[in-house]
Design a protein around this nucleic acid. Structure first.
Lengths: 228, 228, 228, 228
DNA sequence: TATGAATGAGCCTTCATTCAT
DNA sequence: TATGAATGAAGGCTCATTCAT
């Protein structure tokens, strides 16, 4: 049985960022420092003003450098946005989950931990997620990035569902891919409403509800009652 | 038992559009015609180029008028976008569902019909939905519009879930509001992936899967097997 | 001895308006009525918004007609402004003074009455005066109009001063033209500060002060002491 | 006895310019140079075309820069106009008069010198004065600036008149404030007609006439006749 | 590497004027 | 005469990007 990984689904920065857009890193320590302060400044400005309403001069000022220096490290707004995403993806990619497989009793625990990891990571990067959403509506490359990530994750979840169906643990009538999409969406949107639109739900409650819905939806019986 | 209505959830234009943004309509038939051709041209241009990348001159040209004429009818891009949404909402608002209530055997049918109506309306307005998503990331007013719609729909679904729980037909452990959000998201995102991101699923399959997931998730038993 | 007439000096609409700019008046009663309501509306709009910041559409709306109708009667903004001035000049031109001449005892009375008439007319047309000032700074024709009026009036006052000097009643060392300019300016500016810039002085006080200053400045002795 | 200062009265740029409108000056010498050439170009263009009929592109072209560069230093036409005024005010503000007080014989000399300084400064800035007049008719802030300057100057003159009245040297029946307004107006308008409207009088004659009128009007006796 | 001034294409917006009805 | 929709030249302003120092 495969593990679903974190249901980053909809909109999670992953390892797919097209790094060809990024220049080689500066060689001197000073250069590295300047570059880093630009990336951090960019994140703050983007999160504050949105991608569209932000200006490169704002980013340069926020980083206490000049606009000329900006162009020493980045070729465009898109490029520094890519760099910002790259920093965030390290955080979003850690499902932090050990490979707990083949053990039916642990499925619920794995899923719950996975969901929890996702919600927590989302919480840390909520503003950036909204940002990526915005940029994806404008720029085809970032849109493709988002879609590809989503697709990859869905495939993983779909395989996991198939395995569960084969093991007789999930409703075999469900289409695995479509179901994977649906369930992944459920979790990512819950996170979106809570963190980005201000519902501000309790993370424990979200974890519990989403895990239960996932189980129910798949026609799984929670292992605990079974063993009780 | 209340019916959920169509799960227009996430992003459906409803009656909440702030019409105060719209000027009074022109008095002559000619004016009405010109205005209409502008709105239609705007929809085409927006759908083709996106809201941000479209220019008012493009809209005017597409409508075979001058830019001056544009300003005769609208004050801004936002305003004509409001007008475009208003045209679409008539289509999105009709769930077209008769009030089928109190009859347990019909719940599945109602839900299925509701979902189908939603998917079909979404299919007709898919590009516009993407557009609204984009604009909502930029403009606080349209964002508020989307959120409010979503909230209203969630409330309706939540009430329906509560009623089902009270009738002993749904898992009483689920938080009604959070669950409503999750399930509505599931359906709207399925539509989004299929129509806007090119998954291009069969509508029947989407209706079937989403209805089943919804039922399962709530811990309902489908009426058919019950009677079997 | 010539009488000075009203010291309309600086900025008083006179009979110099170039009427060649004005079309022939409409023939029908209805046409006359429409034209008149346009002129009145224009005056209100000009006085409210200034010449530059007013739009022809505003004038048409204020007159309850259409912009098309405006062009039935006037060719341009300048033209209707000319018409507005023409209406006002009838009021500004009435010095309301009988020819009181040759009688030394009456000089003060004549001057006082003349000044009073000027201040009162200015008060009735203060907003229009400001308007003419604005337009004169923009449009050479209206500037020329203002200058010519001013010049004519100065000439009259200068002749009057010369006559007084010849009669031994005024300081012969004064340059008549320059003095005429100076004295006329004094009165018109007093009116400007009071009515247009909000000093809001008492008209009696203005009349008294300006008459006394005029007399003193010319080295005239007020008739009363003469009889003493 | 207070000295009146130069009768800059009506329309003289003073220290009241709202400098908050001005951005911080550029840091580099090159920037300073560019800014200065823009201000000079603006003055030329304004004086040539008037404030209203001038375009920012004209100013940029006259300064041999791009329109973008204009916006590097100024936010608007109003702002560069403020900068133009600021340059001029240094010239207009120096009455260049020593404090000659308490000495009755010198009153005429002080007044004459003051008037002369005013006429000469006006002559150097005549076009700018006309410009300020135009802008004041359009823009409330500049209007307020002009009014405030005028008020301040009038207050100074009024105090001087009061002192003269108390010393028994001026007609005690005159209202000091109104008289101050009237006399200041006399001088400033004389300058206006001569320099801006093309009368082109001899400065000596203007100084002599205005000083004499001022003395006569106040009921003062010129010291010279006393010695005759 | 760092700086910040210079650039100008590109888009928005206004409103006097024309014209078909 | 009256109407009001249609027009587009004209000018304002932004900001990513270039470049000289």
């Amino acid at each position: 049985m495969t593990k679903p990984g974190s249901p980053q689904g909809d909109a999670v920065p992953g390892s797919l960022i097209d790094e060809s857009h990024l220049r080689s890193l500066p060689v001197t320590a000073r250069g590295l420092r300047t570059r880093q302060s630009l990336v951090r400044a960019a994140r703050r400005v983007f999160e504050r003003d949105g991608f569209i309403n932000s200006r490169l001069t704002d980013i340069a000022r926020e980083a206490n450098t000049s606009i000329g220096t900006f162009y020493t490290y980045f070729d465009s707004k898109d490029e520094i946005f890519t760099a910002v995403l790259q920093v965030a993806q390290d955080d979003m990619l850690h499902p932090g989950l050990p490979h707990v497989e083949e053990d039916p009793e642990n499925i619920a625990a794995v899923l719950e931990a996975s969901n929890r990891a996702y919600f927590e990571a989302y919480g840390r990067n909520a503003k950036l997620m909204v940002l990526l959403e915005q940029v994806a509506t404008i720029n085809p490359e970032f849109r493709a990035l988002r879609i590809e990530r989503s697709r990859l994750f869905t495939v993983r979840v779909a395989r996991w569902i198939e395995a569960a169906q084969e093991a007789g643990m999930a409703d075999p009538a469900l289409d695995p891919v479509m179901t994977a999409r649906a369930l992944a969406s459920m979790v990512s949107r819950l996170a979106y409403y809570s963190f980005s639109l201000g519902e501000d739900w309790d993370v424990d409650a979200m974890v519990e509800t989403s895990t239960k819905l996932w189980f129910n939806a798949l026609g799984m019986t929670l292992p605990q009652p079974a063993s009780a």
